[in-house]
Design a protein around this nucleic acid. Structure first.
Lengths: 367, 367
DNA sequence: AAAGTAAAAGAGACCGGTCTCATATTCGAA
DNA sequence: TTCGAATATGAGACCGGTCTCTTTTACTTT
């Protein structure tokens, strides 16, 4: 019965039409599910299609309809649990709504991101979800929107881009944990991020091109300033791009005579490395060093002590972005939405008053 | 200067040709980078393309060439660090070789997987990398290969499918850790996996459809049998599909009078949950309970105690699969490759002799 | 039974590229 | 100078669908 192996040359509507004894147009109507056809013909065509094992060619379909049924997603690094969870949110919505996801990693490099956008546009994705590497460099994104395809920004916004954006309230979260640390008496608080600057030094928030991180640093510095602490810019460290880099930076930091009494890690990959270095150097958390990490990664609840984190609704970040995009794709228009999802500080046990908190509380009384 | 906003209707080769004053065919030659053209014409066309901001339509190109430049990837769950790391390996190779990745999560459900394959085939991906949910149910995969598009199996093989396959040597790894546990005196060793059976009970390895996991269980049971332990099938627990399920199963297991003295977790998500439950119940690892987990997730080195794991070369698993696929795409043919990558047991501190090791060694003397 | 209308089917253009084949041009060798 | 080969360009079919427009068929209506 199977002596007729499917030829590699694929079966087309024309083949089905011929077999069913109808015109190509009619067969296409049945197969494509549009227009009006009689029941008799529908059955004949369906039977012929089954007999021939007809497989529609979506490419050809996209050609004429102009819709490819795909959405392009550009994230920094799918390996990072933050992005993999967000992407899960995106793919779930995509599947439910009949879209398919093309995924590209930018490696947080603008050049790669540009190439990615170009590729996706050339492949005629219906829309884009991007987590831009640099807020300041978004010409390629602007161009993408100009081509008429909707764009949604994920986790990082851009003033220059008037498009749907889904963010976590990073500044607020940073302010909260900074206040907490200050109240406990910490004065030497380091903020550590993967974002880098040309000379690997931090001077002002404007040096940071990743929106979410910049807002956090602004919140951190703002609260410090309110509390009368000046020059906290020196405590912001950039360039923790790999675990190895992070290891080096944290080790240097913790070995210096004026070592920080608390560290804020900008993501869970960094947080993990800080934890490791602390242990390596024989420092006890939280007695010798307080640690707060962004992203409630699974491991943070299971260490000794468990780590206090900023919980971001990462899955919902992706989910919301995808829903917004699908909405646009289905014709919703109007002003760009800026959705800001609430974060939450999960207090665990990696934060305590610093050992030298006396000096610190004196400082507190100064102003 | 920018008073001429790009019309949404895209610029085609025909438009460029007209502007450059050449035929469509010639313009296409320049733009497509094929055939021979004079320098003068090339410059003219290039200039016209730039002036018009021509963006090639890959869809149309794929239409005629039959190659879409995309590879379809179907994994269980991108949120699982195992898959996100493997996918990272795949996407890296894809980018380097000029391919783009379409990602679909199967949720380990064969129905979803089938739909995914159909979608990807309809979108005319050039090739597929799949981590099949069930080894026994691969008709749809067979069909995919029959359509002429190469398929590479990731982490899970299938005897029924004679295609390139990349696996970790799961059986060997399971045998190693089982021997270790037995040598320490453990007799009540539980194996816990997410794979499920219709009635949520395990009787024999054939109940397990996920190849990698079945091989591990076979290794586990085989070594136990060698050591004279019978009926260890009862110690294999299935259905740890979510952290909640896992929590319930592990709690029941550890509260039973005949509680296991050691648990082997089939992935890091399960391992984490076992760790949490152990702590909840006030059990000390490794004194009260030994724990070994598959997958060297980042958190495993940072707990107290750190967890002994089976390190799989996950990134290389994905990378190798992608390289194999790209090879096929570039015309390599010949017998199907079965690549088995070595795993490694990373000894940390979550394994020790059981508290009641005396009774255990007696048992050991029995046969 | 004739006319009028709605439903069904067919013919063929079209989407935006590629590619074959025919024609025109250029160049070197005889 | 002239011919032949090599190189450049043009015309148009083609990929596999969708979709408009026209013709044919079926069903009301009076």
């Amino acid at each position: 019965m199977d002596q007729n192996p499917t030829r590699s040359a694929s079966v087309t509507v024309a083949d089905v039409a011929r077999k069913a004894g109808v015109s190509k147009a009619t067969a296409a109507r049945v197969l494509g599910g549009y227009g009006t056809v009689s029941d008799r013909v529908r059955d004949a065509v369906t039977a012929a299609a089954r007999a021939l094992d007809y497989q529609p060619n979506e490419l050809a379909r996209s050609m004429t309809t102009g819709r490819s049924g795909t959405i392009g997603v550009v994230v920094g690094d799918i390996e990072n649990p933050f992005f993999s969870l967000a992407v899960r949110g995106i793919t779930d919505v995509a599947r439910q709504t009949g879209f398919t996801v093309v995924l590209i990693n930018s490696g947080e490099d603008v050049g790669t991101e540009k190439a990615a956008i170009r590729t996706l546009l050339a492949k005629r994705v219906d829309g884009l979800i991007v987590s831009p590497a640099k807020e300041s460099d978004v010409g390629h994104l602007k161009e993408a929107t100009r081509s008429g395809r909707p764009l949604v920004l994920l986790d990082r916004g851009s003033e220059a881009l008037n498009v749907d954006t889904v963010l976590a309230d990073d500044r607020h979260a940073a302010e909260g944990i900074t206040r907490r640390l200050l109240a406990l008496g910490h004065r030497r608080i380091a903020y550590l991020t993967a974002c880098d600057t040309p000379d690997h030094c931090f001077r002002a928030p404007d040096d940071i091109n990743t929106g979410s991180v910049r807002r956090r640093i602004e919140g951190f510095l703002g609260v410090c300033r309110e509390a009368g602490l000046q020059g906290m810019e020196d405590w912001v460290h950039v360039g923790a791009v790999t675990p190895e880099h992070t290891h080096r930076i944290v080790t240097a930091m913790l070995k210096s005579p004026q070592r920080p009494t608390a560290i804020i890690a900008s993501d869970s990959v960094i947080g993990l490395e800080v934890f490791k270095v602390g242990r390596e150097l024989g420092l006890t958390i939280p007695d010798d060093l307080s640690l707060v990490s962004f992203h409630d990664a699974d491991w943070t609840s299971v260490t000794t002590p468990p780590v206090t984190v900023v919980r971001q609704p990462v899955y919902r970040l992706g989910e919301t972005a995808a829903k917004l995009l699908v909405g646009r794709l289905n014709g919703t228009d109007g002003e760009a939405n800026r959705v800001v999802l609430r974060t939450e500080v999960v207090e665990r046990a990696s934060v305590a008053a610093p050992a030298d908190s006396v000096g610190a509380s004196e400082l507190h009384r100064e102003p």
